[in-house]
Computed example of a mutant assay.
Amino acid sequence: MSDINVNHILNQMRSLSLQAAGKPVQETGGSTDFSSLLQQSLASVNETQQRAGRMVDAFESGASNISLAEVMVESQKANVSFQATLQVRNKLVEAYKDVMNMPM
């Protein structure tokens, strides 16, 4: 076995993910509440979808400051974030089923 600290690696991954999304990075000191991370992720996906919807509505109503390319990119961002969230949900359900089927 190696002496890799899993919490440290997870914190690094979260920091890199937040940096890639352009959000400020907050050090948690190794302790993070899973439910709050899940809520933040869902809120972020929701905001992305809401922003894409607003852009589509604005483009359809003839706003001159929004191009079709911008609308398509924002829609694809919303789609990718939703699909990633769906895959995380599927993995969580699969893990839950695995735990529930473990013999006692």
Rank of each mutant, 00 (worst) to 15 (best):
D33H: 11
D33F: 08
S35R: 15
S36F: 09
L37Q: 15
L37P: 07
L37H: 10
L38K: 15
L38R: 15
L38A: 13
Q39E: 14
Q40I: 03
Q40M: 09
Q40V: 04
S41H: 11
S41L: 11
L42A: 02
L42W: 01
L42F: 00
L42V: 00
A43S: 06
S44W: 09
S44E: 12
S44L: 08
S44Q: 12
V45T: 07
V45M: 05
N46H: 14
N46V: 06
E47M: 04
E47Q: 10
T48R: 11
T48Y: 03
Q49D: 11
Q49R: 12
Q49L: 07
Q50H: 09
R51N: 12
R51L: 09
A52C: 03
G53C: 01
R54S: 08
R54M: 07
R54F: 06
M55L: 10
V56I: 09
D57F: 02
A58R: 13
A58D: 13
F59I: 02
F59R: 14
F59G: 05
E60V: 10
E60A: 13
E60T: 13
S61I: 00
S61T: 05
S61Y: 04
S61W: 01
S61H: 07
S61D: 12
G62K: 08
A63G: 00
S64C: 05
S64A: 15
I66R: 06
L68Q: 13
A69P: 07
E70F: 03
V71K: 04
V71D: 01
V71Q: 02
M72W: 10
M72Q: 15
M72S: 15
E74I: 00
E74P: 03
S75T: 08
S75M: 06
K77C: 00
K77F: 02
K77L: 06
A78M: 04
N79Y: 07
